[in-house]
Design a protein around this nucleic acid. Structure first.
Length: 349
DNA sequence: AAAGCGGGGGA
DNA sequence: TCCCCAGCTTT
């Protein structure tokens, strides 16, 4: 039997029941594909449900504010996805009359849509013969054909894309693409793949050559960087604090946080107070600065570890960016900040 | 070609 | 710990 026939046959008998598999609405397919980039289905699913509830159509999403979109995205990570999602929703709603492009080439022009997502939407919604090559497909093909080309090299991307194009079922691209991914996720798993029950085991070259655990090959990534964050949690007598929006190119762009002083190592209160511009000048302020957590909270991300200490600043007279403490939950914040807010006991101050 | 970007789950 | 997850954008 042909490769794609086996995959599709397996898929029809093993696929999970997922909400985006009950529709071919390009808005919902696009939404699901963006959310699932570098994200496990179990993690993305609740976000998909809340987004489709809050924003049933692309117009609802386009008419929302960025803060609303980021708040709903909070915790899912890679926030540029949310910003691009919002921007693209406006293009589709206002410039394209609410209609998504109906082909790979035009989908690719939209912000946040790359090769994978354009192929996924084009094939699933419009049955275009565009092969998807995600992490699952890389693994399935690398193993089945015993290919050692690193999947995250440009040569590898080209090679696997070409191979996927050859293998695709041109009659049913939508089912083939999803079958390939689902097969990688459930059967040809990264660890402990289910080779004993695999419908492709007879012809799998990695299994034959005893190289299942070695494939796919991936170039190793840069080392994790350490950073030191000092957050200033201002508390005024009017029960207000300060939140600032992160601007610029770095991590958490667009999200809110307490005023931040980043240092090159752990610092004490003396060094913090000596920092120019951090606190109001003049002696009329009777500031009380206390360290909330002596042991830094280590917020671990893929590419950096953030050693974080929170400083409580009482008796502050606040001028800019002040918000009532009661409204703090309304702002989109990094998980690091959200965790602090939920455990912080205001009563002690 | 390489780096930057989140957070969570599994081994 | 390390690796991976329905990747994309910028440098």
């Amino acid at each position: 039997m042909i490769f794609h026939k086996i995959l599709i046959n397996w898929y029809l008998g093993n696929k999970r029941d997922l909400p985006w598999r009950k529709t071919s609405d390009p808005y919902r397919i696009w939404l699901s594909e963006i959310m699932l980039q570098q994200t496990r289905i179990e993690q993305g699913l609740p976000y998909y449900l809340s987004f489709t509830t809050s924003f049933p159509t692309v117009f609802d999403l386009a008419n929302a504010s960025q803060d609303e979109v980021l708040k709903l995205w909070q915790g899912l990570g890679y926030y540029s996805r949310a910003r691009n999602l919002h921007e693209t929703s406006k293009v589709v709603a206002y410039e394209l009359d609410g209609k998504f492009p109906d082909n790979y080439k035009d989908l690719l022009k939209l912000k946040g849509i790359g090769d994978y997502t354009a192929s996924a939407v084009a094939s699933i919604c419009y049955n275009e013969a565009a092969p998807v090559v995600d992490g699952n497909v890389y693994r399935v093909l690398a193993r089945y054909f015993d290919i050692e080309t690193p999947i995250n090299s440009s040569a590898g991307q080209k090679e696997f894309k070409a191979l996927a194009t050859e293998l695709m079922d041109k009659e049913d691209p939508a089912t083939y693409n999803q079958a390939n991914m689902e097969f990688g996720a459930l059967q040809c798993k990264p660890q402990n793949p289910l080779c004993e029950s695999c419908p492709l085991s007879n012809s799998c070259l990695a299994l034959k050559n005893n190289k299942i655990a070695m494939l796919p090959v991936k170039l190793k990534k840069a080392k994790v960087k350490k950073r030191y964050f000092n957050y200033l949690v201002f508390l005024s007598e009017e029960n207000e604090t300060i939140l600032e929006q992160r601007i610029g190119k770095g991590i958490w762009e667009g999200l809110y946080q307490f005023p931040l002083m980043e240092s090159t190592s752990l610092i004490d209160a003396e060094a913090l107070l000596a920092e120019p511009g951090l606190f109001p000048e003049g002696g009329e302020y009777n500031l009380k600065v206390s360290l909330y957590n002596d042991t830094p909270i280590i917020h671990k991300l893929s590419h950096q570890h953030i050693y974080t200490r929170f400083w409580i600043v009482e008796n502050a007279e606040l001028n800019t960016n002040t918000i009532p403490l009661s409204k703090i939950q309304e702002y989109p914040v990094p998980v690091l900040i959200a965790n602090f807010i939920s455990e912080f006991e205001l009563d002690e101050y």
